[in-house]
């Protein structure tokens, strides 16, 4: 018998993350680390970690990383990629970071068609600060700052930022995936692989939105969280490829 799931080379060995039980970050981290190894990219990668729950990602990933101020991930990534176009650059961000405080940076880096990849974790709440309403919070969803449920009359509507940037000519690959089951995780990995390859081929901006569980702030068990992604979150944010300008796909 042999080990079927080797520890990924670019994930620090036997690390115990600070993430809550059932949090989607752990799975996405693993997928990213696996792909950087499988695609032989990790050695030439600089990653940008955000302010938010993933602020400590540099303690888990084993490749060069820098932390960004809240919302500024894609501005840092722009500076890095423009200075070192030969490197593989990755910005890992959450929904508050990417779709609220960093909206301008997200929109304009995509508009410029910057040649890096964005991993966008959408869990519809602010996780680290304790479950406040996010730009992606669903209508009716209760959070600590929408205690009666998000009411569009007062709080507006969930923002579909990946759908917006997917319409830009500079965006070569955009897909929305979910972390809710083994099959969906395999699909998510495939999507991130496509995004990485898009960057390697220099085709344009690539972004993968990952619907990901925050059981703690959703006040659900991890298993129920998977079901909620499937039954509720996905209805507002349908999965699928949003744009694909790779050869034969455009």
């Amino acid at each position: 018998m042999k080990l079927k799931n080797e520890w990924p080379k670019h994930y620090k060995r036997e690390v115990i993350t600070h993430y809550c039980p059932g949090c989607g970050h752990g799975v996405v981290h693993r997928i990213v680390a696996e792909l950087l190894e499988e695609m032989d990219l990790g050695k030439k990668t600089i990653g940008v970690n955000p302010a938010g729950c993933a602020v400590l990602a540099y303690k888990y990933f084993d490749f060069d990383m820098i932390e960004a101020a809240h919302g500024r991930g894609t501005a840092l990534a722009t500076g890095i990629k423009r200075s070192r176009p030969d490197l593989f650059v990755l910005s890992y961000q959450g929904d508050g970071d990417l779709a609220a405080i960093g909206t301008a940076e997200t929109i304009h880096s995509a508009s410029r068609g910057e040649l890096f990849t964005v991993i966008f974790i959408n869990n519809a709440v602010y996780g680290m600060t304790g479950g406040q309403m996010a730009p992606t919070t669903l209508k009716g969803q209760k959070t600590t700052t929408s205690p009666d449920g998000r009411n569009p009359k007062y709080e507006g509507y969930p923002l579909h930022i990946t759908d917006i940037v997917a319409t830009f000519p500079g965006v070569a690959y955009a897909e929305r995936v979910a972390i809710k089951s083994p099959a969906s995780i395999i699909k998510a990995k495939k999507a991130i692989k496509n995004a990485f390859q898009t960057q390697v081929d220099g085709l344009g901006y690539s972004i993968i939105e990952v619907l990901s569980a925050c059981p703690t702030n959703w006040k659900m068990s991890p298993v129920d969280s998977m079901k909620w992604i499937n039954d509720v979150l996905e209805k507002e944010f349908p999965l699928g490829v949003l744009t694909d300008k790779r050869k034969g796909n455009s």
Binding site: A75, L76, A77, G79, I80, R112
Partner: peptide
């Protein structure tokens, strides 16, 4: 490299990214 950024905030953060790679910026 010259970039006219979307804001001064973006410009200083691009500066951070570039400086992190050891580039004079």
């Amino acid at each position: 490299v010259f970039i006219q950024s979307e804001s001064e905030i973006a410009a200083i953060n691009m500066t951070i990214g570039s400086a992190a790679t050891g580039t004079r910026v």
